[in-house]
Computed example of a mutant assay.
Amino acid sequence: MQYINYRESRQRGTADFPIEYHHVSPTHPQYIMALHWHVEFELIRILSGSLKLTVDEEEYTAKAGSSCFIPAGTIHAGEPDNCVYECLVFDMNVLMNKNDDCCRLIRRVIDHQVELPHHFPDSRAGINRIVWSIFDASASKNEGYQLVVLGAMYQLFGTIFATHDYKPVPEKQTRTHRRILQLKQALEFMESSYNQPITLEEMAESVGMSPKYFCRFFHEMTHRTPVDYLNYYRIERACYQLMTTNLSITDVAYGSGFNDLSYFIKTFKKYKGTTPKKFLR
């Protein structure tokens, strides 16, 4: 699983079964879930530790035994704390069959007509039992696991509707929607230009804001300054390259937007608590 691009756009699973399963432990190349979004929906289950999850402008701490639901197109990020977690990224259209009643309910989720909870704590035992069965079947890859996954997904959303565990989406969320779109624009600019020199003025200009207002806006949305997040993203990108390519530390540094090796090492240690050389051991 790679959370490098802010907007992930690729085939999930197969065309016939567009559901993709990932197991993420501390040794995973992208253990920290950087801000990103994708056109599919996502389920996350926490096996151990905790995951500080940001979904649009809301924050949750998901602990072992809990699960999370991420709507399509939603900006989200996760900071694990001694955590092992799993993700299931899926195209909700896989549940759209010829049963009109089922399609009508699933369509309300796909079209964002209803808002489902983003976090199901471990106290939600009934919901989490269903989520666990989805993940267990996905991990097993036993013959017929696809039937188990689809059946459990119907059970999950059926239970949510049966218990009215959702709320209608207000017709107008103009300001919030606009802010999220602006953040996506800023993140796309960083993602496309991180390996080049970028000024604060250029980042602000990418969303039509003054540098001062952009700094305040970005911090409100991400709890980081723009420069801090850019450097954080560059180091995450560098980590991925160090673990998945044979590039030297120097080449990775320059390819990640740093023009000074010593500054790269200093910044790397700030975010990772170790040097690039020790990180590779």
Score class of each variant (00 low, 15 high):
C83H: 03
N93F: 10
E57W: 01
F41M: 12
G49A: 05
S140G: 01
W132A: 12
L147Q: 09
H36M: 07
R129M: 07
V114N: 14
E86C: 06
H112T: 06
L156K: 09
H76T: 09
D101A: 12
L53E: 06
M33V: 15
N128C: 01
S123F: 11
S25G: 04
I46T: 04
V149G: 02
F135D: 02
M92E: 07
Y145N: 02
S67L: 05
C83E: 03
L88H: 08
I110H: 14
Y154A: 09
D111N: 12
Q30F: 04
D122A: 08
D100V: 12
I75M: 05
L105P: 12
Q30K: 11
C102P: 08
Q155A: 08
M33P: 05
Q30E: 14
M92T: 04
S67H: 02
S140F: 11
N99S: 09
S25N: 04
I70C: 04
N82M: 03
Q113N: 15
H118G: 13
A152F: 09
S123K: 11
Q30H: 12
L150P: 06
D122R: 12
H38L: 10
Y60N: 03
S67E: 01
N142S: 09
H76M: 10
V84F: 03
I134C: 08
V84G: 03
L51F: 05
G78C: 11
E40M: 13
Y145E: 04
L147V: 11
I110D: 10
P71A: 13
P71M: 10
N97A: 11
V84P: 01
P121S: 01
N93L: 09
Q155M: 07
M92N: 08
L35N: 10
E58Q: 11
S66I: 00
H36V: 08
S25L: 00
Q146P: 00
E40S: 14
D111Y: 10
S140H: 04
T61Q: 06
H36W: 03
C103F: 15
I134N: 04
C87Q: 06
D81Y: 02
T74G: 15
G73N: 07
E115D: 12
R107H: 14
I110S: 10
N93Y: 12
Y31P: 01
V94F: 01
H112Q: 14
L147A: 13
G73A: 08
I44W: 02
L150N: 09
G151I: 00
C68L: 05
E79V: 10
N97I: 12
E86H: 00
N142W: 05
F157N: 05
